[in-house]
Nucleic acid binder design. Structure first.
Lengths: 243, 243
DNA sequence: GCCGATTTGTCCGTATGTATC
DNA sequence: CGATACATACGGACAAATCGG
């Protein structure tokens, strides 16, 4: 259980919603009621609720209340709104996963790489390519560029394991922000070399820029997904008139 | 200019970041400094900053500061994190846009429709199909199901215009929450009938469940995009250990 | 249409905890 | 260790929207 109070309240409310304790389409108890139940301040309850709004569990309306809009679909193979490693996703969905490194070499950012990744021209990088297998079938081709100055001791052997675990545990680098762009691209010969696309001639491509806790972009990864096992979710809340 | 203080501060900070007033990779002024500058409370500054974090402009770190991670790429043809109508998107990107209704008829949700849309079986709906043209080329096939009880007077003529404007202005229905799922699907004969896919044999499909202010899902729309003009953006922030 | 009770939205001030340097 | 910075939490005040009488 998390130490922070607002996360405790958030978790409990979420669990109640998922378990059907609050009827769908109905109002949750009012903030004042929840204040009494959880013995906390109004702000703390409000923070928990705002996280539930962000996650698409509830919807609020001034003068009315907090409405449960949970629908238990969400059997996604890939979840949005958070940074999740390939391994974490596979574990959550109960699939076996393996990772193979098919390329690893130092390189320098030229104009083309810079334009694509956002690294400055001339930056010293590692180029890393990995294949992710789900239940024994190659499903994702990962093309990464890593800032060498952030991880000078990186080797192919380390990349074979969990890159993020290395960065966090060995280098004490906690990943904070990630900017993602999603597109659909025609398959390249390289895609076909590694992935069995079946009928598809396209891939779902997620371009990911990852920033460490110092605000330095240290990783650009293009994840090229077999379309059949790709899914992305998102919730949006409309603001009254936010230009 | 928005009336709310936190939005004013948010807008001003965002504009300064976009205009390069704060160096990229450097810290913004501390919260206490901003409190003095904007003559407000700590909470208000923090709220503005938290919105900037959500939008991928800055990143915060306890004990350190608020770091500018803005990168002026973002020339996307489709923006995430908010609910934007086709018309709004086209206007923003300077493209001409037209909408054609190619099908409009009442129907009832059967098992298949219910499973796909999330409407209950037996619900009375309108089935609506529209084509969106960008600069004269058909780019999006929209397949919608609308809850008839929420818009009993809807006609094909109204659907020819702006559906959302009708809902908001005529019915006083303000849209609040939208749940989106993105996938890549093989083109169907129907897709090929309406869209010129060129080399692609897939489409980018955005399934959208829209809730009105009463918490009732009133619209399910599947937007089937020509892949070449589709792009989706997202920012994610990793929490320390949020299970 | 008005009024009052309820509920969420905004904003303030303060105190304490925790991470960074 | 101390100074600084962000993170969490509390309590209070008023505004704005909703709903029922």
């Amino acid at each position: 259980m998390p130490r922070q109070k607002f996360l405790q309240i958030y978790s409990q409310l979420k669990q109640r919603i998922e378990s059907g304790e609050y009827p769908v389409g109905q109002l949750l108890p009012s903030e004042n009621t929840l204040i009494g139940e959880f013995d906390c301040s109004r702000n703390t309850v409000r923070r928990a609720i705002s996280e539930l709004v962000r996650d698409g569990y509830v919807q609020t309306r001034q003068g009315w209340g907090v409405c449960n809009i949970f629908q238990p679909i969400e059997h996604s193979s890939y979840t949005m709104g958070m940074i999740e490693s390939f391994r974490e996703t596979a574990r959550r969905t109960g699939q076996t996963s393996t990772t193979r490194v098919v390329a690893f070499e130092p390189c320098t950012a030229d104009e083309s790489i810079a334009a694509q990744t956002g690294f400055p021209v001339g930056e010293e990088l590692f180029a890393l390519q990995r294949i992710h297998d789900l239940d024994g079938v190659a499903r994702i081709l990962n093309i990464s560029y890593l800032r060498r100055s952030c991880m000078p001791g990186l080797t192919r052997e380390i990349a074979e394991g969990s890159l993020y675990r290395y960065l966090e545990e060995e280098l004490g680098m906690s990943i904070i922000t990630s900017k993602r762009t999603f597109t659909v691209e025609l398959a390249t010969p390289q895609d076909r070399q590694w992935l069995d696309l079946g009928e598809y001639n396209c891939l779902a491509v997620v371009a990911n820029q990852v920033y460490n806790s110092e605000g330095v972009m240290f990783e650009y990864t293009q994840s090229r997904h077999y379309p059949g096992s790709f899914r992305f979710q998102d919730n949006a809340v409309r603001r009254p008139e936010e230009s």
